[in-house]
Design a protein around this nucleic acid. Structure first.
Lengths: 238, 238
DNA sequence: CAGTGGTCTAGACCACGCA
DNA sequence: GCGTGGTCTAGACCACTGA
């Protein structure tokens, strides 16, 4: 592990253990450099990490301070970016199941061509899965994936985890993803599989996943039961 | 403007103008340093910016490459973090109006105390606003704000923009915010003001806004008409 | 093994806050 | 004007990729 990450980790510990108190100024970069036996640049990089992680903020000419809400974020190791999450109501030791409703290969329609940046002759997998948590259905996925990019998908893979297959079997590295979230009325399919009543809304999430190289490899629209799923995220407004 | 940002900006232009083509390798850091008359460290910082912006990716030992989907992000100037947005269906030249439904001062309940990190004797403003776009109501806000942190809110301010007031009149600097998004059934108030039918869902957004110092200054729950608002965001999964 | 990116240093200068 | 953070350099070493 590089030195700047080590230093950042140590400072994070100090904040967590309240050695550096909330709302207070921490020692200046020169002192820290001396203490940790590094150059000041390295200290600066460490503090930049902690700034992005939301633990501290700096005022030029004044100092570096611990944020009032730092302890909320100080729990886990430093890893920025991981800031969008799906939360399901039930969490503990409940069995996650996937039921494959549909599994085809076909050519993409216009929207799919655009979103996946492929032409109309590039074959895609198309599958629909019902996700079940502790016996209760909670979301219905509709997904298309280019065969060229992610080859070898089988019904077996769909019952397990597609992402695990891509990561572990194909050793492909993920990149960003873009999502759009809406509230929507349930479709006929939703009512059938998610057991929605007529006036039960669904949380609709449209998503494109990219590889590290920027190649889109999955385009999906998921309907979640409104009473079992919410989405949370942190927005860094720099 | 610092040199590393200038360099990043120039490289961004080259990608946008296709001088550096998508999926191709760009010149190595040593050459770029020479060309721009900077040290290699400065080039590295510039490339880091572009990486975070989603324009390029690096493979150690191999080079720096333009991402396949780079042109999507290359439009505007470099500014990361601004990655969560509210999109309203109608955009062009439509008048935005705010109708104040309620405006009080009171003490906070338990949830509000927790979210705003204040005690039960800290007074808060509490207001409810209906937002109207081109004559059509589209969202209903319910907001609480500590009087100490943001003093001087008036009905006049509410009719204009609270954020503009905070930024410009009080010259206070914003920081992060956290949001939770859900689909929900309309409440009686929603039906009345947003003109929702019984089976029209709403998009519920619960939000806490923080100052740069990490002090929370606003806690709100907003209900949006499902057919006028959606939320989009980019997730950097590093 | 040559080329490329990732990290680190010591020292310098500048911009800003604050007394 | 002093102390603080922000930027920059020149040069070094290491880790990794790919021929």
């Amino acid at each position: 592990m590089p030195k700047y990450k080590e230093v950042a980790e140590k400072i994070r510990e100090r904040i967590k253990s309240k050695e550096y108190a909330v709302d207070e100024r921490i020692p200046d970069q020169h002192s820290l450099a001396e203490e940790f036996g590094t150059s000041r640049v390295t200290i600066k990089r460490a503090l930049d990490l902690l700034t992005t992680a939301g633990l501290v903020y700096t005022i030029q000419g004044s100092g570096t301070y611990v944020k009032r809400n730092a302890l909320l974020q100080a729990q886990s190791s430093i890893q920025i970016g991981h800031n969008v999450g799906l939360t399901t109501a039930i969490q503990d030791e409940v069995e996650l199941e996937s039921k494959v409703i549909r599994f085809d290969v076909r050519f993409p329609d216009e929207t799919e061509q655009q979103q996946l940046m492929i032409n109309k002759e590039t074959p895609i997998y198309h599958y629909q899965r019902l996700r079940i948590l502790g016996g209760r259905p909670y979301s219905l996925e509709n997904t298309v994936v280019p065969v060229n990019t992610i080859p070898g998908i089988t019904e077996e893979v769909l019952k397990d985890s597609v992402y695990r297959y891509i990561r572990e079997e194909l050793s492909i590295v993920f990149g960003d993803n873009r999502q759009i979230v809406r509230a929507a009325k349930p479709t006929a399919t939703d009512k059938k599989y998610l057991d929605c009543k007529d006036d039960d809304p669904v949380l609709e999430v449209e998503k494109i996943m990219f590889l590290k190289s920027g190649v889109p490899f999955e385009y999906s629209t998921v309907h979640h039961r409104f009473d079992m799923v919410e989405m949370s995220f942190i927005n860094q407004d720099n």
